[in-house]
Each structure stands twice: as structure tokens, then as C-alpha cells.
Write a protein that binds this DNA or RNA. Structure first.
Lengths: 224, 224
DNA sequence: TGCGTGGATGAAAAGCTGCTGAGAAAATAT
DNA sequence: ATATTTTCTCAGCAGCTTTTCATCCACGCA
């Protein structure tokens, strides 16, 4: 298990790394946001401990950037600020957990165990596309932190779209994957469900994520 | 719960002890490092409040010594010095938390609660989700400190839900885990038990912890 | 500019799912 | 032995989902 520790206070960083190594992890240190991004994007780490206050690019920006690149490495935020807003922001950006400074090392270690175990636990069941998040475990969907309620069918269609984000899928592909077997008879169910989804997740926003490609099918896109 | 207060200023020590007793703890006082070591090594305490500046052997040395002896009793450092170096040193030696003087008693109490609860949770078999607590040893359930009486089956279902908190579980999953093996025949026992649980733990509250995900199953959630 | 095809939309019927109260059977307590 | 609690089945109903259908709209092409 490789852990990256991003913390600009050298002493603190050294201690955490030392502690991790003692617990049997392989740990690397990193002291600023820019290089953190680069390291994380290598996708060589099983987890990242990320301080929020960093010189230059802060922790939030780092997380946002790597998530936008589709990197799913679990991140544990380290924060001195205790406000709920910060925590919420961090978790919404795709952090897996957070811990408030000052913290107990035992607790930090416990959280890291949880974080890495989760990853070992095979499937990351969360998909992201721009500001849209689809969590197949919680069966929840959010766009810009707003919760979106979907029926089972609607949910299935959206999952199919987000798994193929930025790729145009035909109605037949959607139908084949969700309405099992080849019920060849033409119907416009797919169109109708696209409509339901748009109503719930696109109508309130100026940027429309579900786009029609005339003569072909539909695509789900994050902002360009 | 027994707490040892190690602080050489007699007045301060007396006040902390008094306060702890008022909160229902059993608290002992101790005024120097040497005797602190001896007391802690008895392993009769559930937590220690340890001042760093002590006559003779200081707090760090005390902690180091007892940890070397393998004593894992949780320790909360009390320190006037605010420097990171001290804190890091303390945590690295195996302290669980620290608090800087002057402190608010409320905060001290909160940290002690955390410290002792953590210990209790590991030893016992306790799950938490928001304001809900399920103790598998005592077979007791509380929500916002109000006791909730459950039948054995109801209890099992709730334990299954809380172990999977924030993850949607299907009726089949619940059934498979509680009504042993695959009793094929469809029945709505699970629905009925969910109903019983709701009646006992959700009906009196505005926030409903047991939520239905139509077409999928149920989730137990703390407040969002 | 007008026409045709493909897509969007509203409404309504049909199909389910989950909720609930009642009560029988079984287990447990008195 | 009797009372009480617990477990489980059943059936009806309310409301959400799914699906179909008819109509309307818009884009692209001659």
C-alpha cells in the first residue's frame, strides 16, 4: 500500500510518514499542491493524505483537478478549520474522509485503514462527470451538490450514460442494456426516459449535460 | 470510567477532578511524573489527562515510559505551549489527543468523552449512525439518548442496516442475512420488520433514518 | 421556402411496489 | 395452564413507475 502525504509543514509531514512506515505502508512526502497533482495523477498511490492549506494551490483545488482528470484515488483531507462548510465542500469534491487537526494518530491510522480497505474492496461504485455524481451504493445522484431523485429505470439509464460519458450511445444500445433482451418492436421509451432525466437534471441548469446527436443517439458530457 | 488527572498545580487539578466527578467519572489526582507512571501502569484507568510541565519527570517522559511498557491507556495532553513541535512529539509518543491551556471545560469534557468512548467502542461492539447507537453486547438501542426496545428479529435487522449504513441493501440481502439460507418463497417479512422498526425508531422524529429506495431496498442514514 | 424525418412532449392507461392493519401460529414469560 | 410477546402471512389499497400513443416541433435538405 502506497500513501502520499501532502503537508507543507515539514515536521508534521515527516512524523506522519514515519508513522505510516511503522504501520507497514510505503509513504512518500510532498510539500505543495502542484507537485501533489502530478504525483496523484501517476495513479500509483492507494491513498492520499491531503492538507487543505498549502502554499499556492490549496487542497480543494488539488482534489478538484485530479478528480476532473478521472483519477479516483481515495483522499483523506487534513484540516485545521473545523467548519462544516469546509468539510462538506471537501467531501462533495470527492474526498473519502477528513480529519480535523489536531488529531489522534490512532484515529488517523484507523481512517487510513478504512480508506485503503475500501479500495481493496474491489469496486469503486461512484461515477463522476463534471458536477454530476452517481453513487451506485447509496443509489444517489447529485449535480452541484443538489440531490436528484430518480426512479429505478431513470437511474439505470443515467448509469449507462455516465459509464459511457463523452461517447455517443444509440437508442438501441441503451434499450439493449436496460430493457433486457432484444425486444425488437420499436417504441420510444428511451426518448421518454431521456426526457424524464432532462427534466430532473438538466432543466434547472443552463448547461445541458444530456445532448442529442441527431440521427445517432445521446451523449452525457461534463462542461467542455 | 476512571480518569487520572496528572497536574502539579493543585488548584487546577482539584477543579478538573471536581468537574469530572460532576460528569459522572471517577477521577483521581496525581501531582508528579514518577507517581503518574506508577498509577498509569496499574492499567486501572480508562483515560489520563497529562500535563506536560511537571516537576522532575515531565509529561513526555511519562508517556514514553508507560508506552514502552506496552500500556495503551488513552492519554490526553494538557499543554501551555502551543508549538507544533510539542504536539507532534506528544502524538508521536502515542498520545491520543491534546488540549492547549487555557481551555474551555466544555471542550475538555468533549475530548474526554471522545477518548473514553473510542476505547469503549472498540472493546465493546457498538455501532453509531448519527444520533443512533446500537450496542450489540448490551443489546440496547438508543436514539438521541432515548432508549428503544426491540425484539430479537427487529434488532438483527437494525444491526444489518447499521453495518451497511449509507449503502442501499436489498430485501434479499436482508433476508439472506437474517432468515438463514435461501427460503425462496416470496414473503414480505422484511417489509413488515422495516415497518416495526420505523414505528419504534422513526415515527417520533422528523428525520427518518430508514429510507426506502423504490425498486431497490432500504438504507439507514444519519442526517445528511 | 416548404417538406420530410427524427426528436420532444403531454397525457393517460396499465403495471407494480411498498405500506399497512388484522390476525393466526409460535415462542416465551408468568 | 394461561397470558403476553414475537414472528410471520395475507390481502387490499394508494401512489409511483413504466409504457404507449398521438401530436407537435425543429432541423436539414432541395
Amino acid at each position: 500500500m502506497r500513501i502520499l502525504v501532502v503537508e507543507d509543514e515539514k515536521d508534521m509531514n515527516r512524523i506522519i510518514v514515519k508513522r505510516l512506515v511503522a504501520e507497514g505502508y510505503c509513504a512518500d512526502a510532498c510539500y505543495d499542491g502542484e507537485s501533489a497533482c502530478d504525483y496523484i495523477c501517476l495513479e500509483e498511490y492507494d491513498g492520499v493524505i491531503l492538507d487543505i492549506m498549502l502554499p499556492g494551490m490549496d487542497g480543494f483545488e488539488v482534489l478538484k483537478k485530479v478528480r476532473e482528470k478521472g483519477v479516483q484515488t481515495p483522499v483523506l483531507f487534513l484540516t485545521a478549520r473545523d467548519s462544516t462548510a469546509d468539510v462538506v465542500k471537501g467531501l462533495d469534491l470527492g474526498a473519502d474522509d477528513y480529519i480535523v487537526k489536531p488529531f489522534a494518530f490512532q484515529e488517523l491510522m484507523a481512517r487510513i485503514r478504512v480508506m485503503t480497505r475500501k479500495k481493496a474492496d474491489v469496486r469503486e461504485n461512484v461515477y463522476r462527470c463534471g458536477a454530476l455524481t452517481v453513487d451506485c451504493n447509496a443509489h444517489s445522484v447529485t449535480r452541484e451538490e443538489k440531490n436528484i431523485d430518480l426512479s429505478p429505470r431513470e437511474f439505470s439509464v443515467l448509469v449507462y450514460l455516465i459509464r459511457n460519458q463523452n461517447i455517443v450511445v444509440t437508442r438501441d444500445q441503451i434499450a439493449a442494456n436496460i430493457w433486457d433482451s432484444e425486444s425488437e418492436s420499436y417504441s420510444n421509451v428511451v426518448d421518454v426516459y431521456i426526457r424524464y432525466l432532462r427534466k430532473k437534471m438538466d432543466d434547472d441548469f443552463s448547461f445541458k449535460m444530456i445532448q442529442t446527436v441527431r440521427g445517432v443517439g445521446y451523449v452525457l458530457r461534463g462542461e467542455l
